[in-house]
Structure formats: structure tokens, C-alpha cells
């Protein structure tokens, strides 16, 4: 049996998430809008950290998957699963916000730019990962298959990142990490860093909650699989030959 050493009903993660969200909101609203893009530039303070969390989550999924394959400890499988789920959510959020921004800036919902397209593909890769997890209730089999997929899927992430450099396209090239230093307004850079930091804290709190939930889900499955339940053969009894009358 899995023991729940942490209190799954702890409210602290919820408070941390709320505070992190609030900090991002206040920071994004207090900075002066971009001279060219106006109020719309505030989307960036959610879009960029969402994209960052997508990368972070999938990186954590890969690391946890690799650790599972090494240690064969289901705790690593739960971490990989939780992180992938959060990653899919933030990938979806980053894409949606990017589309809203794109419609206002470029006049189209979607552009066939490399980073956007590959981010969408990454979204489907991890949807596939989550779908794969639904194909069996056998904890160990599920963990093994998902772990192999988790390691394989991450081959995509560096491709997503470098594609923007390899392909000269519409999308904003990364504008902060450049050898000659950032070319944004310093107040915007600080706000962006605050939002990225807040989102990272939020990710940690969400992981804490999601892993607790995963542990409960696993414990339910394990409880059903312990020796107290009926074995498969007990469901089969001798046929009733009385004719049913």
C-alpha cells in the first residue's frame, strides 16, 4: 500500500497559485504599454511565461521518465504524468494567446511560422502521451510505455526551439537572450522576468497538487489490486442447469 505522507487537502498550494497569479496580474497591469502594440503587449506577460512553462514541463516529464526507467519507482511516473498534463495546458494557453495577439497584430489567427506550428505539434505529441496513458490500468505497464514515450517526445523540444533560428519567418525571434543584451524597455524586461518567475512558482504549486492527486489515483488502483479483492476466477461459477424456472 502507498502511504500518503503528505496531507493531500493542504491549502498552501492553492494560496501559492493565487498569489503567483495576482503578482503576474499586478505586474502586467502596472507597466506602461508598448509604444507600438499598445495594451495588447500585456498579453506577452502571460504568453511568454506559458510558453516557458510548456518547455519546463516537458523537460521535467523527460527527466522524470528517464528516472522511472532507471529506478522503476512509480513516484517518478506520477511526476512525469503530472508535468505532462500541466505542460499540455500551458502549451494550449500559449497557443491561444499567441493566436489572439496574432489576429490583432498580423490580422490572421494563424500564421505558418515555424515556432507556432511546432508548438502546436508539441501539443499533439503530449496529447498522444496522455492518450497512451489511458490504454491500460496496469500501473507498471502504463509507467513503462509512458516513460519510453516521455523520453522520445522530448526530441521535439530542441527542434521547436532551434527552428526559429533555422527558419527566417514572421515570428518574433527570441529578443531577450542575445549576446548584445536585450533591446526591450528595462521596465518591460523586469515585468517579464517577474511574470516568468511567478509562473514558475505556480507550476511548482500545481505539480504539488497534481502529484498528490496522482498518488490518490494510484492508491485507488492499488487498493483494487490487493489480495482482499476477488480474483478473476471467482467471478466464474458453475452454469445454472435448472432451466431458470
Amino acid at each position: 500500500m502507498t502511504t500518503l505522507e503528505r496531507n493531500p487537502s493542504s491549502v498552501w498550494p492553492w494560496i501559492v497559485m493565487a498569489v503567483a497569479g495576482l503578482v503576474t496580474f499586478v505586474a502586467a497591469m502596472s507597466v506602461s504599454p508598448d509604444a507600438v502594440q499598445g495594451q495588447l503587449s500585456r498579453i506577452m506577460y502571460v504568453h511568454v511565461p506559458s510558453a516557458w512553462l510548456a518547455y519546463l514541463s516537458f523537460g521535467v516529464t523527460m527527466f522524470a521518465s528517464a528516472m522511472y526507467l532507471w529506478k522503476r519507482d512509480l513516484a517518478w511516473d506520477r511526476r512525469a504524468h503530472s508535468s505532462a498534463e500541466i505542460g499540455v495546458f500551458f502549451t494550449g494557453l500559449a497557443i491561444s494567446l499567441g493566436m489572439i495577439w496574432g489576429k490583432s497584430t498580423w490580422g490572421v489567427w494563424w500564421t505558418w511560422d515555424a515556432r507556432l506550428t511546432l508548438t502546436a505539434i508539441m501539443f499533439f505529441v503530449y496529447l498522444g502521451y496522455l492518450a497512451l496513458r489511458r490504454t491500460t490500468d496496469d500501473l507498471d505497464a502504463r509507467a513503462k510505455r509512458a516513460a519510453v514515450m516521455g523520453v522520445l517526445a522530448v526530441i521535439q523540444v530542441p527542434l521547436v526551439h532551434f527552428s526559429v533560428i533555422w527558419w527566417q519567418t514572421l515570428h518574433q525571434p527570441p529578443s531577450i537572450i542575445k549576446p548584445e543584451g536585450p533591446d526591450m524597455d528595462p521596465s518591460m524586461v523586469v515585468t517579464l522576468l517577474i511574470s516568468v518567475l511567478s509562473f514558475t512558482v505556480m507550476y511548482a504549486a500545481m505539480m504539488y497538487k497534481r502529484i498528490d492527486l496522482a498518488r490518490i489515483e494510484d492508491a485507488v488502483l492499488i487498493a483494487e489490486q490487493t489480495n482482499t479483492g476477488p480474483a478473476a476466477g471467482e467471478a466464474v461459477v458453475a452454469p445454472d442447469l435448472s432451466g431458470g424456472s
Binding site: 490500468d137 496496469d138 483494487e224 489490486q225 479483492g229 476477488p230 480474483a231 478473476a232 476466477g233
Partner: peptide
């Protein structure tokens, strides 16, 4: 076991 069901035990 297969999934959530025990097939053989002890």
C-alpha cells in the same frame, strides 16, 4: 495481476 484484477495470488 492484469490491470486492476488479480489473476493469481500467493
Amino acid at each position: 495481476r492484469a490491470g486492476a484484477t488479480h489473476i493469481l495470488r500467493n
